[in-house]
Design a protein around this nucleic acid. Structure first.
Length: 940
RNA sequence: GCCCGGAUGGCGAAACCGGUAGACGCGGCGGACUUAAAAUCCGCUGUCCCCUUGGGACGUGCAGGUUCGAGUCCUGCUCCGGGCACCA
């Protein structure tokens, strides 16, 4: 449908008279929304341009992964972000609100393997569809700044950043554990491993060390612990802080009898005199050397068992302690005692040094281990205010304060609950270790360096070359990007490692060499995308410093709290590394040219962060699947899948609830546990509630209540809602019906209320108001309500409290409906009310606000209007309801002047009729007056 | 297991700093309009009790505590959600 009027003015200005208001109820949301979306686009209303004469505001919403269709979760995340951006614009800021796609990732590759569709094709089709869906939201995205991470002109710069990291010593080769499938000879993602088995083949998966690329994130650990200058939610800061997990203590070297050093980190070096054994991670490199022939069989067996378990399983503290003795011994450097060296899976190679000294008397895990295996326990703390610990009588470790005993040089030193050097005994121990060259003060972080290698196809290539002489070198900048080859085969293994035409290359000296076949973690792409929005087509640099000088840093970032520790920490790390690598040198110079002080502007990416919760799928009773098929090595090849409510457990080969689906792989919860099912391409799929021929992808609509996301799959389709109710209604409802930070299950019934609100706005905005018997009182009352609403909505929009902002607008709606019925307010007051309502609603419901604004005969877009300002004197109430309590219970209410004094309030309260009978129950002991709201009389 | 959240009517929720619990909306009930239904409009709607106009008791996951006063603060639990490093 074409716009009825084709305004031709400058940005945000429309000319030409609109039709006079038609009948009250001609609200055609489809026509109106489409027309305005086209008109805004034509006028470039949301193009954002650098303008140094105006204050800037960079609003960012987390970019979506193109999983297929835009789902309610995207709307839920983005609608308020858009509304906030629009609000800031009306507040006078020059706003940048861009969008893009985080387009590399595993689901595209799954589709390739399972359905033989190329990841690029799958991704591009999804992006095309989601672009259309995003436009239907009516958001103020500046599409000219769109960035897509899987386009070569984007990942060229992802590769360039990798090179920068390499050249500045941040990227390095190291070893890490991977999920290795011996059957497929490939690495699997954690998500692909279910119950220690490959979800696709049902074959076992083992942990194996592999050499890969890392970023030295721990170099920035201390800086990342500081949140100075940024406004982030406390829980996120806390999670990041705990994730980084800084602990202070000492590194101590134990020497094995074979002469090897075992370095351990401990936060309690003061308890070294009580260290009676050591435990190494099963994968620790010294295990082989330590193991005696007598113990080798047991050690090997234990190591294999440990390799079959994930880290998460190994960290389960409640399970029984397991471990085996290597037969080897090391010398405790503080007392020259010979201590046995064990291996146990609760020690992780990835934490600390992969080895611990065990002090069973004062560490509960060590205590349980010692008791289980009959190892020596030596108490070295005399607990404060208690009897000395006697080893055989101990039933648990002692971790409290006291005085050191049995500890040679640090005997008698006090020990407290303080951490690090703040604890006298720890300080004394560190000093002693350093004086005697037995150890040194050290800091350990729980956080590990960022492993960025992925043995996959659909990611940004790592621009490195392995020379035939073993040296690794970077691809020259002029050869960037290393482009992903398109003609590859998808088998489940990494195609790059098997594509000879990609691998074969030459090094900088023209000698034959091999390309790196790993690609980068997709978090790498999303660690710098907001810079790419600044100049998405720039082929000279990752971003244009002229744009960056104006727009950076991001002022407001919104997205899901599920990104608390990974994406949001990587993003912070990335910016700090960029700063140190000099990436912002030009930007800083440009800032100075424009009189902007660049100091501190490149330390953090996002000044203010707010998180939304998750919208859950509509609640359904979990459907039961009845599946027929043949067993093949522990999983079922299905020839028929039926959705059947309440089917008997023996109705098919497998009967159970669908828990997860990845393409045609199902996980079905049966009475006997989780079963993996592969739905064969020609299998019959039957879903009674979906008419026509069904296919396996539709099974996603039949999960129990769960998160709406690409991996869980129960998606409420917003397109249908938008068709039926309109984007403005859906936007309003999403902002109204939930506590944004919390989210919750989607329930379609409630949207009727938001639709009614939008229709009422239509009536109010398009009705011709004729004053009748005008009264000052009515006019004053409506004006007061209008200005109270401005104040409330303004405050709520500023603080991301969308639901109460909409509620305030609904309250104003109610007052205006009342006013239009009574016709007692003046035309001026009515006009002020209508124009205020439309401007306050514009960020939330942009289309209807614009349509009605234009019908009022305005020439500029409502979206370039000034945000209304509340007049506090108009908004003020002159009387207030004062509550009178007796002993904390409400017994009466009085209307009193807002300015009532404490004495007057007290007098009035004690004189109130309904209070008298309560006063007779005893003496008035105390009166607490909090004018003008409350008086509490204490009687007793 | 570890880290971080959450729990308030039949439902989604609101409640600034400790000061009227339930704003706003859904649903429900009753009424108006209609041949009828839908839509729309008006009224009621936390639970229980009493003789009414009206009044009273109870009530914010559970058990305690602090306070004149607790949804809000403290202690100990229960259940639910998010994250745990190759899902994004």
């Amino acid at each position: 449908m074409q716009p009825k009027h084709r305004p031709t003015g400058p940005l945000g200005t429309y000319h030409g008279g609109f039709d006079p208001p038609r009948r009250a109820m001609d609200y055609e949301h489809r026509e109106i929304e489409q027309r305005w979306q086209e008109t805004w686009e034509e006028h470039g209303l949301y193009r954002s341009k650098v303008d140094w004469s105006r204050p800037k505001h960079y609003a960012l919403t987390m970019l979506p992964y193109p999983s297929g269709d835009l789902h309610m979760g995207h709307w839920y995340a983005m609608t308020p972000s858009d509304a906030r951006a629009r609000y800031m614009r009306m507040k006078g800021y020059n706003v940048l609100f861009p969008i893009g796609f985080d387009a590399f990732g595993l689901p595209a590759e799954n589709a390739a393997v399972q359905r033989n569709i190329h990841p690029a094709k799958w991704t591009h089709e999804n992006i095309d569809r989601m672009r259309t869906q995003l436009r239907s939201m009516g958001a103020m995205f500046d599409w000219e700044r769109e960035a897509v991470s899987c386009y070569p002109n984007y990942y060229k710069w992802t590769e360039w950043f990798f090179k920068q990291m390499y050249e500045h010593g941040i990227a390095y080769r190291g070893e890490a554990m991977v999920n290795w499938s011996p059957t497929l000879q490939t690495v699997l993602a954690n998500e692909q491993v279910i119950d220690g088995k490959d979800e696709r083949t049902g074959q076992p998966v083992e942990q194996r060390m592999m050499e890969q690329w890392f970023f030295a994130l721990t170099n920035y650990a201390d800086e990342l612990l500081s949140f100075d200058g940024i406004d982030w939610p406390d829980p996120i800061r806390m999670m990041q802080t705990n994730w980084i997990g800084r602990s202070e203590g000492a590194e101590v070297t134990f020497v094995t009898e074979g002469g090897d050093d075992i370095v351990v980190f401990t936060t309690r070096p003061d308890t070294l005199w009580g260290a009676t054994f050591m435990v190494l991670a099963p994968e620790h490199p010294l295990v082989d050397a330590l193991t005696t022939d007598e113990h080798r069989a047991a050690v090997d067996e234990y190591r294999q068992a440990a390799a079959a378990q994930s880290e998460l399983e190994r960290m389960e503290e409640s399970r029984e302690k397991t471990g085996v003795f290597t037969g080897g011994y090391a010398i405790n450097p503080v007392n020259q005692e010979r201590v046995p060296v064990w291996i146990a899976d609760y020690v992780l190679l990835s934490y600390g040094t992969g080895a611990i000294m065990a002090v069973p008397a004062h560490d509960q895990r060590d205590f349980e281990f010692a008791r289980q295996f009959g190892l020596q326990i030596v108490p070295v703390i005399h607990p404060a205010g208690r009897d000395e610990l006697i080893e055989p009588e101990m039933t648990e470790s002692y971790v409290g304060p006291g005085v050191m005993v049995n500890s040679g040089p640090i005997d008698e030193v006090e020990t407290t609950d303080a951490k690090g050097r703040a604890n006298p005994s720890v300080a004394a121990a560190i000093d002693w270790l350093e004086e005697n060259n037995a150890g040194k003060e050290a800091i350990n972080y729980r956080v590990r360096d960022w492993l960025i290698s992925r043995q996959r196809y659909w990611g940004s290539p790592i621009p490195m070359v392995h020379r035939s002489d073993g040296v690794i070198e970077a691809v020259t900048d002029t050869d960037l990007p290393v482009v992903l080859p398109e003609d590859v085969e998808f088998t489940g293994r990494s195609p790059l490692g098997e594509t000879e035409s990609f691998l074969a290359t030459t090094d900088s000296e023209g000698q034959p060499a091999r390309r790196e076949s790993d690609t980068m973690d997709t978090f790498m792409c999303s660690s710098w995308y907001w810079f790419r929005y600044l100049s998405p087509d720039d082929d000279q640099a990752p971003f244009d410093p002229e744009e960056a000088a104006y727009w950076l840093p991001v002022d407001v970032y919104t997205g899901g709290a599920e990104h608390a520790v990974m994406h949001l920490l990587y993003a912070r790390f990335f910016v700090k590394a960029m700063r140190d690598m000099g990436v912002f040198t030009d930007t800083a110079a440009m800032m100075k040219d424009h009189g902007r002080d660049p100091s501190g502007l490149f330390d953090e990416p996002f000044l203010l962060l707010r998180n939304q919760g998750q919208v859950l799928g509509a609640e359904r009773i979990g459907d039961t699947l009845v599946i027929e098929g043949d067993w093949d090595q522990g999983r079922l090849l299905a020839s028929s899948v039926q959705v059947q409510a309440g089917a008997a457990t023996d109705a098919g080969t497998v009967v159970g609830e669908l828990m997860r689906r990845t393409e045609n792989l199902l996980q079905v919860q049966t009475a006997d546990g989780l079963v993996g099912v592969e739905v064969l391409p020609d299998a019959a799929v039957e879903i009674p509630s979906i008419p026509g021929t069904n296919d396996v992808t539709q099974l996603k609509h039949h999960l129990d209540i769960q998160r709406m996301s690409k991996s869980k799959g129960n998606v409420v389709n917003p397109d249908e809602l938008v068709q039926e109710y309109g984007a403005d209604t859906v936007r309003t409802h999403l902002m109204f019906a939930f506590e944004w930070q919390k989210g919750g299950p989607w329930d379609e019934r409630g949207i009727a209320g938001s639709r009614r609100f939008i229709e009422d706005v239509w009536k109010l905005g398009s009705a011709a108001y004729e004053p009748g018997d005008v009264s000052d009182r009515a006019s004053t009352d409506l004006r007061r309500k209008v200005h109270q609403t401005i104040a409330k909505v303004d405050e709520d929009m500023a603080e991301f409290k969308w639901n109460t902002a909409v509620a305030a607008l609904m309250t104003l709606r109610n007052a205006m409906l009342e006013a239009v019925r009574a016709r007692r307010v003046t035309s001026e007051v009515w006009t002020e009310a209508v124009e205020t309502l439309l401007r306050l609603l514009a960020p939330i419901a942009p289309h209807i606000s614009e349509e009605l604004w234009q019908r009022l005969g305005k020439s500029d877009s409502v979206h370039v209007q000034q945000w209304p300002e509340a007049d506090a004197s108009v908004a003020a109430e002159d009387t207030v309801t004062m509550v009178i309590q007796v002993n904390g219970k409400v017994r009466d209410r009085l209307d009193v002047p807002a300015g009532i004094s404490a004495e007057e309030a007290e007098t009035a309260a004690l004189a109130a009729d309904k209070i008298q009978s309560w006063l007779e129950q005893g003496e008035v002991r105390k009166v607490i007056a909090r004018p003008p709201k409350l008086v509490n009389i204490v009687v007793g």
